[in-house]
Amino acid sequence: MEVLRIENLTKVYPGGKRAVDGLSLSVREGEICAFIGHNGAGKSTTIRAVCGVMGFDEGEIRVDGISVREDPLACKRRIAYLPDHPALYPFMTGDQFIALTADLYGVGAKERAERTERYAAMLGMTDRLGDLIDSYSHGMRQKTAVIAALVHQPRLMVLDEPFVGLDPEAAYHLKRVMRELCDQGSAIFFSTHVLEVAQKLCDRVVMIRGGRLVAQGTMEEIAGDRSLEDVFMEEALHD
C-alpha cells in the first residue's frame, strides 16, 4: 500500500523560479526511500510541500490516500517532519518539548513515557532532557527532534538531512530506529547528501535535478553493481 503518493507536483516561487516541476513519486509501506539531488534541486521544497509547511501550485500529494490539500490536519497526524535545522523552542526543556508534541498528536500518557525513555536511552539523551534546549548543541537538538518525531509513531517519517550533526553512535541508532519503524509498517522519506548511507539503508531512491525527476526505483534498479555516487555523478555530468 502506498503511504505517500506525489503526482505532478509543481511549485513556482514569486519571480518565476520553478523549484519543482511536474514531480511524481511514491513510497510504499515498509520502504525507506532516499531523495537525492544537488543543492537547489528542489528536495527541501518537495519535502515542505509533503508536510504541509508550504503550499504548491499544481499536482496532488496524498498520505495514506488522504489529500494534503483537502485534509491537511489528517495528513499531518500521520506525518513526522524533521527539518535539517530543527528550530526547537529554546525556552523549553527537551522533556517539555516532547510532551508538547505528544499532546498535539494525542499520544497517551503511558505510551509517551515509554517511548520517550526508550528513544532517549538509545540516543544518549536521558540525562539531558531536563535541560533547556537553549543549552543544547546542534546534535542534541537533532536527537530531541528525533525523539519527539518518534513518540507518536508516525505512519510517514519525512526527514531533511537527518544525519547532519549526529555523532556516529547516534547515527547508528537512528538508522536502526528507521528500519524498526518501517518493519512495523510505516514508511520513511528522507533527503541526504551522504550517498553511502543512502546506499546501505534505503530500499528505494528518487533522484531529482532542476526540480524534475531524473531516476526512480529500487537500489538494484538504479545502481546495480555500481555505487550510488557513481550513478549520481554520471547524471550530474550528463547535463
Binding site: 510532551a99 499520544v107 500518557a109 509517551r112 513515557a113 520517550t116 535541560d131
Partner: peptide, 9 residues
C-alpha cells in the same frame, strides 16, 4: 535541570 516528566496529558 532535574527532569520533571509530565505524565498528565
Amino acid at each position: 535541570g532535574v527532569r520533571r516528566v509530565r505524565v498528565r496529558c
